[in-house]
Structure formats: C-alpha cells, structure tokens
Design a protein around this nucleic acid. Sequence first.
DNA 1: CACCAGGAATGTA
DNA 2: TACATTCATGGT
Length: 208
Amino acid sequence: MKHKLIEIYDKLLKEFSYQHWWPAQSKDEIVIGAILTQNTAWKNVEKAIDNLKSLDLCTLDAIYKSDTDIIGRCIKPAGFFNQKSVYLKNIAKFFVINGSVEGLSELSTKELRRRLLDVKGIGKETADSILLYVFKRPVFVVDAYTKRLIKRHNLSINTDYDSIQKLFEDNLGKDVEVFCEYHALIVKNAKEFCRTKPLCDRCPLFGV
DNA sequence: CACCAGGAATGTA
DNA sequence: TACATTCATGGT
C-alpha cells in the first residue's frame, strides 16, 4: 500500500514535471538565496540577487569581505535587510573559515546541520535547504507550504517541523533527488493553485 | 486598506 | 515547551 505522500508526489510530478531546483547559478547563490527568501516572496529575492550580481557581490567570499551596509543596500528589495545583511555576513564567514563547501564535505549530516544551526540567522528550514540543495544530503525541507499541505490533508497528528520532516523521510526513502523535487513541487503547486482558493477543483490534489 | 511571501531571533509565561 | 512580537519590502 503506497503512502499518501507518494500518491501526492506522483500527482504533482505528473502535473508540473521536473522543476530543476534550486534555481541558482552557483552553490553560493543557493546559500544567499536561502537567507534572502526567509518569509519573503521569491520575486523580491531575485531583485536582491540581481543587485548583488551587478556589484559582483553574489559570492560568499565577496560578502565576507564587503561592508554590511553595502550588502544591505543591495538586498533591500528582499525585506528585513538590516537583519539579513548581518545573516549573510555570518554564513559567509562560516563558509570562509571552514574551507567552503569542500572543507565541510567530510562532516556527517548531523554534525553539519548542528554547525549550520549555530550560525545566527540559520534556522531549521534554511539549514535543511542548504544541506539538501548544496551538500546533497537526504534531508527533507519543511516550509510553510509543506505544513499547510500536511494540515489540509490531515496527514499527521503533530504538525511541528520535526514531526513533518520525519513523516516525509520515513515514507519516501532517503532519496536526494526525490526530496529536491518534492519540495520544489510543493512550492510550485502552492503558488499555482492554493493561494486564493485552497484545494479548489483545479488543484491537482483535489480529492486526495 | 489589509494581507501575504519558499523564517528566525528574542522575550514571555 | 508554547506562543507572541519584531523585522521590511513589494505584489495583490
């Protein structure tokens, strides 16, 4: 008997096809985007990233060496720029002093996650996004859309982050590609159908 | 005008 | 542990 989560995944994949996530040109850009998109529309994140690129500041090394107020002006469209400029400096420093992605690649997933969570500005979702899309570790990313999906379809009693993450990881197999695609599809579906009319009859998950 | 967007830190009880 | 508040821009 297939789990509901697999049924949902199949329907979303059939409806939207592959999403090619994370949308970025480099691993540094994924990390930067993960910070900038915190409670912020992706459209505004794109503007901020374009601003960074125009000054050649869309790398962790460049951010590490730049003034916080310069970063702040670039990322202003993404909101919370006073906080996020500091957060970007924090994560940039973390990668620089640890030898970038390569320098951290030998760590276990659990240890790497702990270290990411120690960086001020990196919470569970941001840490897991980096673990999955940058380090290719089998960690499921739980965002607001994912929680909403689980609640609307009554797929879990507990709806906190850890419970929902465990639900996905226990029922999908630890497949990085599936985790990457499933999270992307949940976001895609939410933007496409679930904004104004939750579970309307046009939604691919109607009746599931 | 209110409300939301691919959250996280901080403070309170 | 479980909520409430704060942070800020831009689209609907």
